[in-house]
Nucleic acid binder design. Structure first.
Length: 303
DNA sequence: GCGTCCAGGTCTACC
DNA sequence: GGTAGACCTGGACGC
């Protein structure tokens, strides 16, 4: 069954800017196609019910949203899907304070024109945390492969081959050896398994991060206390929570900054901090947009 | 074919 | 509080 949904947002929004915001759109169960630009995502709406959302770019309006499901959608399910899309597209993030700062900074003045700044997020924060751990100390191709293994070996699949990301309890019920050998997570298997155990037992209320009233520094400290999450990973997760007071530098960012600002020389972290200091609590977003600028100009140049 | 290096880092032990 | 060394995996590279 295909259902056309109204886009769950009426404000200013640029679809390609979210799709290209970072690598998440190429990590299952997200899929993208170009010409026309489409973002596809399987969404879990209950324990054993999955739908597929297909968002297609419309340069003159908001993207169209088509939902594929095995049966007609009830009103509560439509509400749940809209809420999921709202979360994943980070539609509740107010970027005006950031754009105010970019006006004084020539290098990032393009950001508002592109509507850049919303980072694509997973349906659950648990999924964001797992994927972030899978980005550490490895190539991007290994990240995509480990993530695929997790979904296809442990995720729930319905009759239409829609896949839902594995829930914490499913991972916790499995063994570390399975994660290590079958999903090829290597030493990360211990981290993911412990995280899943703590989430399913209630020791960590991982989804509460999304609506926590704690300060950014408190959230940062809490994230660092999760095994496998270090400074880069915690800062990357804060970005996905709409908090940008940490740079979250990894080797990829450091190399990009060396090319952009160091004439090929790696800058010290202190030097990098000072580059973005004027953006204050938005500096993590400023840095990220600075190093990913070409993605926007190459993939969807605007006039 | 084989060894080494390193990629969107983090943890632990030790100083 | 700072730092060397270990850690899975797999692709790239040199020989």
């Amino acid at each position: 069954v295909r259902t056309l949904l109204p886009f769950p947002f009426t404000g200013s929004f640029n679809f390609p800017a979210v799709v290209f915001s970072h690598g998440w759109s190429s990590l299952a169960p997200f899929f993208t196609t170009e010409s026309p630009l489409q973002l596809q995502r399987d969404i879990r709406i209950s324990r054993k019910s999955i739908v597929r959302a297909i968002l297609t770019d419309n340069p003159k309006a908001h993207p169209s949203v088509i939902i594929e499901s095995t049966s007609p959608l009830s009103a509560p399910r439509i509400t749940s899907i809209k809420s999921g899309l709202h979360t994943m597209l980070h539609l509740d993030l107010d970027l005006h304070p950031f754009y105010e700062r970019t006006r004084k900074q020539q290098r990032l003045s393009w950001a508002q024109d592109f509507g850049a700044g919303r980072m694509l997020r997973s349906q659950t924060f648990f999924e964001d945390v797992v994927k972030t751990i899978l980005t550490t100390n490895c190539s991007w191709s290994l990240t995509t492969s480990m993530n695929r293994n997790l979904i296809y070996k442990l995720g729930y699949q319905n009759s239409k081959a829609f896949y839902a990301y594995p829930m914490p309890e499913i991972i916790a019920d499995g063994s570390v050896t399975f994660l290590r050998k079958e999903c090829k997570l290597g030493y990360r298997a211990e981290y993911i398994h412990e995280l899943a155990r703590n989430c399913s037992s209630g020791k960590i209320d991982i989804e509460s991060f999304r609506h926590s009233t704690a300060s950014e520094e408190e959230l940062y400290a809490e994230l660092l206390s999760i095994k496998g999450i270090g400074e880069y990973a915690a800062a990357n997760l804060l970005r996905l929570l709409g908090k940008f007071n940490h740079l979250g530098l990894d080797s990829w960012c450091r190399n990009a900054i060396a090319k952009l600002h160091g004439n090929g020389r790696q800058l010290s972290d202190t030097e990098t901090e000072s580059l973005y200091a004027e953006f204050e609590e938005w500096k993590g977003l400023a840095m990220w947009l600075d190093v990913t600028r070409d993605w926007y100009f190459q993939k969807f140049p605007i006039n």
